[in-house]
Amino acid sequence: MIEEKYHRIVIDGTPYYREYYMGSGRYGDDLYTEEELVELLLEDVIEDTIEVDPHKVECAIRRIANHDDRNLIRNYLLFLERLMEN
């Protein structure tokens, strides 16, 4: 869980972000653009990168001997794809 809090500080119409320590009422040293803050926060919460190669997945499914098992896996993948669209 992210424990840092940030305040938006607008300078000449441009928003910047600075870490704010609730307990002490003090600010951190760095001033971030929105893009920099998003990247910083993503680094803290993204644990791993998983790459999916649809071609390799389809090849693996074709190697499943049982026809019903193959269909079950294909239907489950279709279900997951629909979930990702929503």
Rank of each mutant, 00 (worst) to 15 (best):
M22Q: 13
R18E: 12
L37H: 00
D53I: 08
E47S: 14
D44V: 04
E4Q: 10
L41D: 01
N71I: 04
M1H: 09
I2P: 00
E3A: 10
G13P: 06
M22L: 10
R8S: 15
D53K: 07
Y32M: 06
D53A: 02
I64L: 14
A65N: 04
A60Q: 10
M1W: 13
R8L: 07
V38T: 06
R70L: 02
E51L: 05
N71D: 13
E36C: 03
P15Y: 14
L78H: 09
L80A: 07
D53H: 05
E81A: 12
I73R: 01
V38M: 03
R63Y: 10
Y6D: 02
R18D: 04
D12P: 01
N75I: 02
E43S: 12
I50F: 10
M1I: 14
Y17M: 03
E47M: 08
R70E: 04
F79Y: 15
F79E: 07
R18S: 09
Y27Q: 02
L83K: 13
R26W: 15
R70G: 02
I2T: 11
D53Q: 03
H55K: 07
G28W: 09
D48S: 13
P15I: 07
Y6H: 04
L40A: 02
I61P: 00
R26S: 09
V57K: 03
V45Y: 05
